[in-house]
Design a protein around this nucleic acid. Structure first.
Lengths: 163, 163
DNA sequence: TATTGTTATACTCTATAACTATA
DNA sequence: TATAGTTATAGAGTATAACAATA
């Protein structure tokens, strides 16, 4: 477990008793939990020959519903990355035949990205495993605990977004 | 806030009503909170001309106490990265005169990494701001909320480490 | 001129493997 | 032979800025 965090706090208290290092406990444990969780999620993606960026694009297209088409801008917006990052993800996915790019008929500057049948089949195969991995991460947490946990996460996100 | 998460869940429920996507809410909010938090922490480091890897090394040396010396192996262990990653971080820090490498007198294969006065002064300058940033992230959370939150994080980390 | 999207370039961080020196 | 550490190399992922095409 993360008594590594407790050991670090004790070092700080010995070396800098003048500082209140208690926030390190919360942020430290959050960082460690997230790293461990990400490792599991990434591991699942790579079992299916994907990385999290690629999965994110495929899943965004799938959940947008038929005809499974979005603009690069919409994908960038959803992923909270630059359009350049999306373009590079799309290059990889298009090379593998998982998505296709076509011209937007309404605005010839625009591109329409569409899931191919292969891409749709792949993401539909990965999705149940992804959900199972996520479910295993929150195993043992009751509905109320989850709700309270999410509420606290929301406040942390809000605090961060103010700054 | 992350009603973006709620919108995503609604898309999934419409497109795949057969799947229980509720775990996505928890993991999604955790991911978003962590990303937003990391942005703040990173921003503070770069105000001081540091990145998180460099700060981590300097802080690990400082909290180890006088004479502020550790082996590269101990630093790698603490940071949970490879010795190669530590060597490269040390190259950068040594170039800037923030740490020095010397031979371990007891084992001539070994290296002793020591904080220079400049390195010590820098990390001591950054530390209060770092703690202030962390404190602002958990602003509004009572002691009990923090304790419960950390307990849940610990269980998630444990769940992840089993897998 | 503004917007959409792509590419060229560079940067950061990291791991793998080869290498040096010492035990 | 094994261990401590470094470096050479390569890979992933990203952003910034320049660019092309269209509005």
């Amino acid at each position: 477990m993360s008594d590594a965090v407790e050991r670090i706090l004790e070092q700080w208290r010995r070396e800098r008793p003048d500082l209140d290092v208690s926030p390190m406990a919360v942020i430290g444990r959050m960082t460690r939990a997230m790293n461990a969780a990400e490792l599991q999620l990434t591991r699942n993606f790579s079992r299916h020959g994907l990385d999290s960026g690629s999965f994110d694009v495929l899943a965004t297209l799938l959940r947008s519903g038929s005809p499974y088409s979005l603009s690069p801008a919409a994908l960038a917006d959803s992923a909270m990355v630059t359009s350049s990052a999306i373009a590079q993800r799309l290059n990889k996915l298009a090379d593998r035949g998982l998505v296709v790019r076509s011209k937007d008929p309404d605005d010839k500057r625009g591109t329409v990205v569409t899931l191919t049948p292969e891409g749709k089949a792949l993401v539909e195969r990965v999705l149940p495993d992804h959900l199972a991995t996520e479910r295993s991460l929150i195993k043992g947490l009751g509905a109320e605990e989850q709700a309270k946990f999410m509420e606290v996460l929301g406040r942390i996100e809000a605090n961060a977004s103010e700054g």
